[in-house]
Design a protein around this nucleic acid. Structure first.
Lengths: 135, 135
DNA sequence: GCACATAGTGTCGAAAAGGATACCGTGACA
DNA sequence: TGTCACGGTATCCTTTTCGACACTATGTGC
């Protein structure tokens, strides 16, 4: 989890990369989808336990945004104590290759250094010939 | 382009999905990478022309973040008027499958309605049995 | 002497995202 | 009578992001 993404799609109608990212944006969406993909249906507090540092308010908010987007479904059981199930919709499941690709790349290439994500690869370029920052 | 992503990787050490997303976050990173992937090396103003609504300050900022992450390289030619080339590094090129997956999903599933990105698919669930929002 | 192109930087303010904290209703359980 | 679990809301505050706008340096061409 990470970043807030202020998704104003209006600025860039027509870029498929950004339009997809707009659905994954928000600080916890990636992990939420990851867990629902791996574990199937989860209740609110089950998700909460898997996301140790998210606040209740934030989790609710991210879940509502994903629900509004049509990526996950929210099923309320009128019992006490309340029970609410979250599960991926068809659209949500169609994101699976993307989530897997993101997870695979992250696992391979990212390491966490001093609380910062950094890429493991040496950033060789092969394109530069004149002096980098020759100024 | 779309969203601001406040990437505080510190909150979630170890989630590979989010750690990858943290590199794509920022309002224009997706498109920038997309264009560099499709067209190869580009100069600052060439990128600017492909991103009609980005401001100079924002473009510079996003490019610097991508450079600092090791995803793209910046080559300065000490000439007048200045010339600066941007190109993907090895690490940047390794993101290609992800960018392609994002672009493919967006092209297939997202349509823009009233300036809002919405998912084309009907969000069928197959998981719900009790009344949704039965309350 | 002037404007132009390139690739920036600096400052300011608005808006959005995120975090902390407190509160709610209900049934079971002690 | 009191407490707990569950799934939330409401409010307030801070941090981050984004956008607008102005400004810079230098060589060339007129």
């Amino acid at each position: 989890m990470s970043r807030p993404r202020a998704k104003l799609t209006k600025n860039f109608p027509g870029c498929p990369v950004e339009s997809t990212l707009s659905f994954l944006d928000g600080k916890w969406k990636g992990v939420i989808l990851y867990h629902l993909m791996m574990e199937g249906t989860l209740r609110f507090n089950e998700l909460r336990r898997r996301l140790p540092s998210v606040t209740q308010r934030m989790l609710t908010k991210q879940l509502r945004e994903l629900e509004d987007a049509g990526i996950l479904s929210r099923t309320i059981f009128p019992v006490v104590p309340p029970r609410v199930d979250y599960a991926l919709t068809t659209a949500g499941r169609s994101l699976e290759p993307i989530i897997r690709a993101l997870a695979a790349w992250g696992a391979q290439n990212v390491i966490c250094e001093d609380g910062q994500n950094v890429i493991r690869l040496a950033p060789q370029t092969e394109t530069a010939s004149p002096g980098r920052d020759a100024a």
